[in-house]
Design a protein around this nucleic acid. Structure first.
Length: 423
RNA sequence: GGAGAGAUGGCAGAGUGGUCGAAUGCGCCUGACUCGAAAUCAGGUGUGCCCUUACGGGUACCGGGGGUUCGAAUCCCUCUCUCUCCGCCA
């Protein structure tokens, strides 16, 4: 949610943000609702002030005296009025709140103009398909693939998009997870093992409810949600808290399985490991002082890049343009790994600065040393990294003439050997 | 799963339906005393929202939600969580 004061004081800033993100929002309707809410609030509060004053008089007077009884009579009418106006206010407030939630975060000035994915800016590239094996092929076409990545049995046991990882497949997944966590730790991110089901309040605080319930798996009895990303429990760690300024910045990383229903995304690009309903990911998250957040976004992105470098995978970094920036981000980089067999880029990390947008909704604040008052923190997150697509690139790019896969040196200590075999 | 107890400010802990945003203690901040510190003394010390250029004013919040009442921290209903005991169990 954006700052309601920003909307009042500088509606044009909000209008420009909506335009830059190529969204359609009737801002005038939101402004009208805001004015209505404030005037109704003033009305209710002045009635309550009246009640309060009368209460004090009545407390001083003797019970049962004619004056007292007259006052009770008088206040009955006021109480009825309060009930009435309060009901109206509650209704307006609900509309106001949901209208406010339709307003996107303000893009940072460094975000390029653009309507969609085609206009994202290639910020950097590292390596190219030239380094990729001449034997590369789409991972699902590699002989023996189903032995290590058993989609058939996964479909039987659960459904499409829930593969079994078997033998070296399982071992490689585990190696990647542990490699990512260890690297995160070295970079100063404290490791956290969070709950992987969350309640509705947590899902709401990060904006996954109420609009995106279709994205999450739900438990039947308890109204819990399987996390679509570790960002959900991790961001909620400090929900409704006021931190000591001295604890900032906080860097955390967490591995969780991630569950996504992705309703309506069937069809394109869903083969093999590209898009799963359950996948493994290490998430990086920072809670930082507002003055530092753009520096911290750069360093988080650098860390995520370093993982791809150590895995010797070619990748590029995209700076998302306004039209392809998410609703709640101020600035976002995507890291895409080159998948030599499919001959396409696969997104493996999305690094974003949310400024106060998430923190406002989740009420994550710190007490400013300067003012002594609570202020909202800035939150930044990114994957470091998502496992299956790294896996795709690794299997495809490193496929050798004999049908085995070369394991990059950084991963050998984790995997336990230098090659993976599909036999 | 069964039985019971509880939830009040940073912490501990009072609170009779009315003058309770809430005693008291601790903590913290400021000042006095001191060369300095400790001790002592005096004052201050929550959060959200609305109005106001400002000074300031108003209102809400005693786990969440609902109800009774002219008036609720206090009474009623309901939910959640915590603790204790029993059962089950990786």
């Amino acid at each position: 949610m954006i700052d309601p004061k920003l909307l009042r004081e500088s509606p044009d800033t909000v209008r420009a943000a909506i335009a830059k993100k190529h969204l359609q929002v009737d801002l005038d309707a939101v402004l009208a609702l805001d004015a209505q809410w404030r005037s109704q609030l003033a009305e209710v509060e002045s009635l309550r002030a009246k009640q309060k004053a009368a209460n004090n008089e009545m407390a001083a007077a003797k019970k049962g005296t004619p004056e007292f009884l007259a006052k009770v009579q008088e206040m009955r009418a006021v109480a009825a009025q309060v009930r009435d106006k309060e009901a109206q206010l509650t209704e307006t407030e609900a509309k106001w709140k949901s209208a406010m939630l339709t307003l996107p975060n303000i893009p940072h000035s460094s975000v390029p103009e653009g309507a969609g994915a085609d206009e994202n800016v290639v910020h950097a590239t590292n390596g190219s398909n030239e380094v990729v094996s001449a034997h590369a092929k789409a991972h699902w076409d590699i002989p023996g693939f189903e032995k290590l990545f058993d989609f058939g049995r996964g479909s039987k046991v659960t459904g499409a998009g829930f593969p079994f990882y078997v033998g070296d497949g399982a071992r490689l997944v585990r190696a990647l997870i542990q490699f990512f966590l260890d690297e995160g730790g070295k970079a100063g991110y404290q490791e956290v093992n969070p709950p992987i089901v969350v309640n509705a309040a947590s899902a709401t605080a990060v904006g996954q409810l109420p609009d995106k319930e279709g994205m999450m798996y739900q438990t039947v009895e308890d109204q819990f949600y399987l996390v679509p990303t570790a960002e959900t429990p991790l961001t909620n760690f400090y929900r409704d808290e006021i931190l000591d300024e001295a604890v900032l910045p906080v860097f955390r990383c967490a591995y969780t399985p991630c569950f996504r229903r992705e309703a309506g995304s069937h069809g394109k690009d869903v083969r093999g490991l590209n898009r799963l309903h359950q996948f493994d990911k290490v998430e990086l998250l920072k809670w930082v002082h507002p003055t530092r957040s753009y520096d911290e976004l750069e360093s988080l992105r650098n860390h995520a890049e370093s993982l791809l470098q150590k895995l010797e995978l070619p990748y590029r970094v995209l700076l998302m343009c306004g039209g392809d920036l998410g609703f709640s981000q101020s600035k976002k980089y995507d890291l895409e790994v080159w998948s030599g067999g499919q001959k396409r880029w696969l997104e493996v990390s999305s690094c974003s600065n949310f400024e106060t947008f998430q923190a406002r909704r989740a009420q994550i604040r710190f007490r400013s040393k300067e003012s002594g008052k609570p202020e909202l923190v800035h939150t930044i997150n990114g994957s470091g990294l998502a496992v299956p697509r790294v896996l795709s690139a690794l299997l495809e790019n490193n496929l050798q003439a004999d049908g085995t896969v070369r394991i990059p040196a950084a991963l050998v200590p984790y995997f336990g050997k230098a090659t993976l075999s599909f036999q």
